[in-house]
Amino acid sequence: MSNPDPASSRRQFLKVSSLSGTGAAALLGTTAASHAGDTPTPPADDSRADLGGAPVCDVSATLWPLKTRVNALKQLLYDKGVFTEAMLGGFVDYYTNVVTPRLGATVIAHAWKNPAFAAALTNPPASEPFAATRIIRDFLKDRQLISPQSTGGWSIGPEGEWLRVVQNGPASPGAPPVHNLVVCTLCSCYPQALLGIQPVWYKSRQYRSRAVCAPRGIIREFAAAKPANRLAPYGIPNYQPYVESYLSRLSEIRVWDSNSEARFLVIPSRPAYVSDSWSEQQMTDLISRDSMIGTDIL
């Protein structure tokens, strides 16, 4: 490296110092080594990162790809007798065949059809804030959609023990509507007992970080990813302006951070195009997973 001009610009400084761990010291006409006998050597890439340099990641550098390590863990746990293939298969089977977003949509469709049911879910008595858990458990048991084996007899299922249901629309009759959006800002807490496995986006840092400051922006982002003719069969030719209009009517947006073991489920606003003549089955088909989290406007 040639001796740099002391009057070099900051850009030049950065360019030179990036070429060697001792670049900055060379520019200052000194060396970083302070102990007699030390030979100044550039730090290895990784330690330079520790000093605030390039963000080197040692996950991929020193370990095998995740999938192979997960398989190694699985084999270890089989060998230790902690799990059997049947146990892990049972979990996959439960979320494949028993609990999918269809389960939650069945509850919401019933709430759309029966305002008294919706009111019971959203207005629990003060002494029983999680009454929705009991009501939904009994509703799904009556329809033979869940069994006591999967619920321990008391909850709806895993991540369905302490459920609160919040409703989009007017907070009171005639009032301007509110909208609810659910997030787990730390990780991925989710009403799994009713919606199944979280979508990938729900677990993303992008969603977790932004939901608590820009929820309308998130709803717009989800809307932009949908085809413009999404609701054309219902006489709404252009979906994105329809979402803008929905957002403009809101008096408030409420973000629910799932930071305890309580879980939140959103009853989306029943759209004007859904008439009373619709069956619960038709409504269930319409209600999307994302609308029950609050990111999708129906």
């Binding site: 979320y95 990938v200 970080s209």
Partner: peptide
């Protein structure tokens, strides 16, 4: 993990991930 309110992560990924249909897949 405490990235509350950070807006620099850009677009939310995988927004078009389909829903699990009963009997089809875990996700």
């Amino acid at each position: 993990h405490n990235t509350h309110g950070w807006i620099g992560f850009d677009e939310i990924p995988a927004k078009s991930q389909p829903e699990a249909k009963p009997g089809a897949s875990i996700s």
